[in-house]
Design a binder for these strands. Structure first.
Lengths: 189, 189
DNA sequence: GTTAGCATGTAAGGAGTTACATGATTTT
DNA sequence: AAAATCATGTAACTCCTTACATGCTAAC
């Protein structure tokens, strides 16, 4: 079950929607998007691109710019099949959509999904975080053993972060809902 | 270069300091500690324990409790070599100490390290986060391309979270420093 | 002219998850 | 009696990182 590979594919498809790009540039953009952890290595990206080529999700673009004597670089663009796959992945609702790694990418491309999907993913993510909080809280009340100062501070900070994240999600959900109630006359932004 | 394996070993050594424990229980505690992402699987924990046994960092405890007819479970305790290894790992100052995964564990066991080490790890972590922020900010100013609403919101939220984390670290660093200036008459907690 | 960054890849190896396998004990 | 959870493991497989290999181009 490809956990990160799928994420990368989704991100590549989404980024290429902005326009053709070559691998090196994709890597930089990708690292910015999912960069909240480790960086993506060439050994991970290029094979993925090759695989996507084979699957006809992307294709090499005919280099329209700077016709001759240019540095050899392979520019990719998405195919129709790739666009379809992007839409399929984006409308998948389920655990994979709100896992830590995946959620960020989904969110970044929310602009290209239905509000119904957006709401379900946001709510799924919120539930996931809430579960985590509950688990910690129940564990804390269960163990009456005194924890040391630093462990306690780490727990406290962790809970606080998670709660803030939940609040952020709630605000976003409310925003979507009120938009649902009053659809804007003209599409904004 | 074992990135997570070392983390697990450190956590196991630290936890067993509280007293002997068996694998199943260790796993639960571990998942709570580093649980801010994926959970630790048996296929990961048990081989690690075996490896630590071979390395004589831990040993099977003679089951003192409930002498007979008890469910077969292997209780581990740390050896002197294990304690030494724990101290060695904890006093290692360098990138491995403030990586995302590692930092939490180090912090949880800060109570068993010198303040000098604590300060260096906290500062290292803060610098790492600050670098991340700078990279994002410079990228944002470079690309004058208009980003869509959701991508922008994600960026904003990410920056906010990182800034809050930096503030948290700064507070902790200040607390350590003022404690350095006024050492408490009696050890608290 | 030399360093730094652009650009594309491959091979080997490690780390860890998934899935499988097994059985005891407690709870319902 | 069945279901849930405790408890320990192994093997295969996947994914990804690390390290290596190559060469171009811009800047200093």
């Amino acid at each position: 079950m490809a956990r990160r590979a799928e994420t990368i594919e989704l991100a590549v498809l989404g980024l290429l929607h902005e326009g053709p790009m070559h691998g090196y540039e994709l890597r930089k953009r990708l690292n910015l998007m999912l960069g909240w952890g480790r960086v993506l290595s060439y050994g991970s990206l290029y094979p993925t691109l090759k695989k996507m080529l084979r699957g006809a999700l992307i294709e090499e673009a005919t280099t329209t710019l700077t016709p001759v004597s240019r540095r050899p670089r392979i520019v990719y663009q998405v195919t129709d099949a790739g666009t379809a796959e992007f839409e399929r992945l984006m409308s998948e609702v389920g655990p994979t959509a709100w896992e830590d790694d995946n959620f960020g990418i989904r969110f970044a491309f929310f602009g290209r999904t239905d509000m119904e999907i957006r709401l379900r993913v946001l709510e799924g993510r919120r539930t996931r975080l809430q579960e985590r909080l509950d688990r910690i809280q129940s564990q804390l009340s269960m163990t009456e053993q005194e924890v040391d100062r630093y462990s306690a501070e780490l727990q406290r900070h962790g809970v606080e972060s998670a709660e803030r994240e939940v609040q952020w999600l709630s605000d976003l959900i409310n925003a979507e809902r009120s938009q649902q109630a009053n659809p804007p006359a003209q599409p904004q932004n």
